[in-house]
Amino acid sequence: MNTTVAFILAAAALAGLAIAPLFLNAYGIGLLVGMTGYVVLASAWAMFSGPTRYVSLATVAFFGIGAYTVAVLSETLPYPLVLLCACAIGLTVALIVGLSTLRLAGIYFVIFTFGLAELIRQLVTWYEVNVTGTLGRYIFLPFEGIHIYWQLLALAAATLLLSWWINRSRLGLALRAVGDDEVVAAHAGINVSRAKLMLFALSATIITLVGAIQAPRWVYVEPAIVFNPTISFLTLIMALLGGATRLWGPALGAIPLFLLFEWLSANFPNYFSIILGVFFIGIVFFLPQGVLAKIEGLRRPARKAPPENKERSGAA
């Protein structure tokens, strides 16, 4: 019953968001595009990193793969096929990275993803300079901001729906168990590596799609633009601010932070990086579980604790 109401509300909100750009100017639509893009990025990031607690710093690697694939293929293939190709490439890279790093302790995964974007950027640059002889490409696709926005909005809805479904599925339970204690999870019968790999690949594919869909906004694309590490950083902050283990957490973190960063970069372009860093440190310090958990934590003491003798619960 509750679920039905929630779905009706979500559908109404989606419809409202879909017609919103009809009443906005180009700047407003631009904001909506950026905001929706980050809602998807943060939600997709949290889909994997939230339950498993593997911090991925590779967001922009996949985002860039998506954008660059569109730049390379948009002239030769029909648009849906281009998106499909982008997905396939993102998925392949995710599987290679995941297979080689997810078996190991989380720290190796973080370190590897930290440099992945730089590695792919250098490889693409090397390929362009040595094989195709060009660096930088133009994208001529007949899309306006509103078309990109609608695609992103659909992707956002699909991503949230998918997250919701995974949360309720066996896979979701498996991931939360893995995030808590891999040894216990494995001894309960969970194929730990496969569960992590599946989610990492899924999350990476969605991130690739965001890059692919947003690419036409740039018109001119080169590796340094689409592999900008700030994108990984922003995605991470947004998901953490909202709370990476909640369905709506990343989206709720993404919207205010995106607007804040837009305002900051317009008004304090020189100090942007410093403010960003300080902000980020603050979030790790004061909201380690995200805003949603903080709000719940503030509410919880009001509820009565179970009337059990608790004197030994500290023993575990």
Partner: peptide, 25 residues
């Protein structure tokens, strides 16, 4: 130790941007 690793990675990731920002300015 795992929680500290994650927290330290996140917080020094923030520090990275602060130092870089100061140098840029």
């Amino acid at each position: 130790a795992g929680a500290l690793e994650v927290d330290s990675i996140l917080v020094t990731f923030g520090l990275l941007f602060v130092i870089q920002g100061v140098l840029l300015v």
